[in-house]
Nucleic acid binder design. Structure first.
Lengths: 328, 328
DNA sequence: CTGAAAGCGCTTACAG
DNA sequence: CTGAAAGCGCTTACAG
């Protein structure tokens, strides 16, 4: 494997000059540059990432930290990031940090030395984790609502989205509208709950505490929570689920209870993952543009890495959209 | 940020000794080890991955290279790997290498220096890419059929799976059974095609060339290919799709043509991704145990990293299973 | 515009 | 069982 020294020798220049050609951190005479580039190509030279990193250079890697690989929303965000990273010879790394996996801090300390920049979904991370991430002093995008502090943010307006879908239910005449959240302390749960409560409140009815239950953001969680709701003496005629996976689980439960959707029970989702249009009845949901979110994150990061932006913190809010299908 | 020198000082030992405690490559007196470990904990020391890597150590990272992040099969494989990697403080990195993205060789040269081991789906990679991967001289698992050479392999018997599902169609009395492949040169396409042809042949009828078409492994690809098939003068009464995504696209096409599934047209998938049970009618398909595949890959890799295995090449074949639902 | 030299934080012979 | 020293392959002052 050719090293920088081999290249320098082949091009008849010093090691420093080769490095300058690579990092573009100071001017190099065009003729010299050409000779070096030729040598690099001829020898198939590739910088050793560990060495550059050690000496203070970059790793050429950007990380995406997600709470789940099984929720297709997150891989799609990754695909969006790839869309913009591909031209730049930057590697995207996706890591799952499930709640209760390994101590968050550990992984973030690791990450902070292996990557040039990262985007993380805050959900599942503790405040300390977040502080560590932000303290890592590398470009950083938060995927989701701003939560205490620094860093760029890309998100959609979950409160508004949830309000809209709840209003849709109210307009359709549903009387007793329940809410199934994901993990209770997760920001998406909180915000979507807020939108739901807000819509009810604006319609002159208040959310009954009993009508709000929490699960986790999975199909199984939704199934469990919906089953509980449907087993009650007086049961809801509509369910606002905090994401599509939960809604699909609720659909499972409705089927088991012999309920027809949306006649006996309306169910709405959130995110519009591909499965939302595949289930029967197809889900009425809020489109959460995962791929676009990924693209926006990557662009923000690149701008920081290119030092086009320095101090200002940017918040990008992408639009959501109510998608009315069959389930409500 | 504390370095190894700080730890050595705090524990009153030499830098080498701290390193030995960390790498466990030579014995350390229990008392010394305890002092060092205490110092590490107290200072919150974490080895700098770049430095270890440079000096010949490991990066503590394992890579999973997949052709697509939007096909949920691959993220699930990643989740399976996480299942076994979590206890070991090893980072999993998932990278998408779409066909026609960047030159495969580039990414593999990169990967080969950033990770301790990797598993790659061969599909989308050229022979040179594979050779580079295998030449990288790090533990390596191929996700899918053995293809020219070295390295451990984890796969399912796609030929058999495809044969079984085609036989199922034959038994149900379908007369003209077409096949929609993914990318034509991809191994899964070839093997599933082989199973399909084999089943027809065994039943005394041979696959007509016209009944075999190729798309890519996406819903859109399946939709396009199925539309073509269904627009013909004499059209198939059954379609064997090379994966679930293609089958779902075929379902879309059938709906557009006003065809009832499975009465007018049977459709089968492959993989049993979650969406397979969500579509209507639910897909008859072959279960391809993605999560288990991921687990097996990770175990194989760890055994090599732990030097429990050295020379022998292992091939793990996981069982598949015909799942009969509504679509065929 | 270019080069010689120091040093990033580790691991690993080498010596005891 | 432990330590002193060399060196992995780069980048970056420093000097010209």
């Amino acid at each position: 494997m050719a090293g920088i020294r081999d290249v320098a020798e082949a091009a008849g220049v010093s090691v420093s000059t080769v490095s300058q050609v690579l990092t573009r951190k100071r001017p190099v005479a065009p003729a010299t540059r050409a000779r070096v580039e030729e040598a690099i190509a001829r020898l198939g030279y590739r910088p050793h990432p560990g060495a550059s990193q050690l000496r203070g250079g970059r790793t050429g890697t950007i990380a995406l930290i997600v709470p789940s690989l099984t929720n297709p929303f997150y891989p799609l965000v990754g695909a969006g990031m790839q869309d913009v990273l591909l031209d730049r010879d930057i590697l995207l790394t996706i890591t799952e940090v499930g709640s209760g996996h390994r101590p968050g801090t550990t992984i973030h300390q690791l990450m902070s030395r292996r990557v040039d920049a990262m985007v993380a979904a805050p959900f599942g991370l503790t405040d300390e984790d977040l502080a560590a991430l932000q303290g890592a002093d590398i470009p950083f995008v938060l995927l989701g609502s701003p939560r205490g502090g620094a860093g760029d943010v890309v998100h959609t307006d979950d409160v508004a989205g949830s309000r809209e879908i709840t209003e849709h239910l109210i307009e359709r005449g549903y009387r007793r509208i329940a809410f199934i959240g994901g993990d209770e302390d997760a920001t998406p749960t909180q915000e979507r709950l807020e939108g739901y409560s807000g819509a009810l409140h604006a319609a002159g009815r208040d959310a009954e505490a009993a009508d709000v239950v929490f699960a986790d953001f999975t199909r199984q969680g939704g199934h469990r929570a919906a089953s509980e709701l449907l087993a009650r003496e007086v049961r809801p005629d509509a369910i606002v689920a905090a994401n599509d996976l939960i809604a699909i689980g609720a659909l499972d439960a409705a089927r088991e209870h012999g309920l027809s959707v949306p006649a006996d029970l309306a169910i709405t989702g959130y995110d519009d993952i591909e499965a939302a249009s595949l289930v029967s009845p197809a889900l009425t949901t809020i489109e959460n543009p995962a791929r676009e979110i990924g693209r926006a994150c990557a662009r923000l990061l690149l701008e920081r890495l290119d030092a086009d932006v320095t101090d200002v913190t940017r918040t990008v809010v992408l639009s959501h959209r109510l998608i009315i299908r069959e389930s409500a």
